[in-house]
Amino acid sequence: MARQALNQTKITVLSRSSNESYARVAVAAFAAQLDPTVEELNDLKTAVSEAVTNCIVHAYPDTIGPIYITVSLFEEGLVQIRIRDKGRGIDDVKRAMEPLYTTGGEERAGLGFAVMESFTDKLRVRSTPYKGTTVTMEKVIRCR
């Protein structure tokens, strides 16, 4: 049975780097209703920042396209963040997720997925070349 979200928001931004800050702050502001710790909020912001940056750098390298962000809140403090693009997709998802692997040039550390993985509880990446990529992350906010 599909889980029923208690609350949800959808945000669409264009793949401009100036939106990286807006996207992570908007997600954190929505998740704030679960009363997370500062550390949990920083974890969410960092994971979102990585996913959105991937869309800007990799999904739409030469164009500006939409990034669709859905944040859903479930029972017991579960936050699910889905970040989807209609960009060029990833040929080899497994390889792209290897730490330090990057096609982004010298100044990119190749650690985006590694950060998403360690700052959330669950990470799933689905991609179809020339159709786009969907990153789904889940994190449980411990009730205080």
Partner: peptide
Amino acid sequence: TFMDSSGIGLVMG
């Protein structure tokens, strides 16, 4: 106040 993996790239470079 905030840093993601772009900061790692900045430091490594």
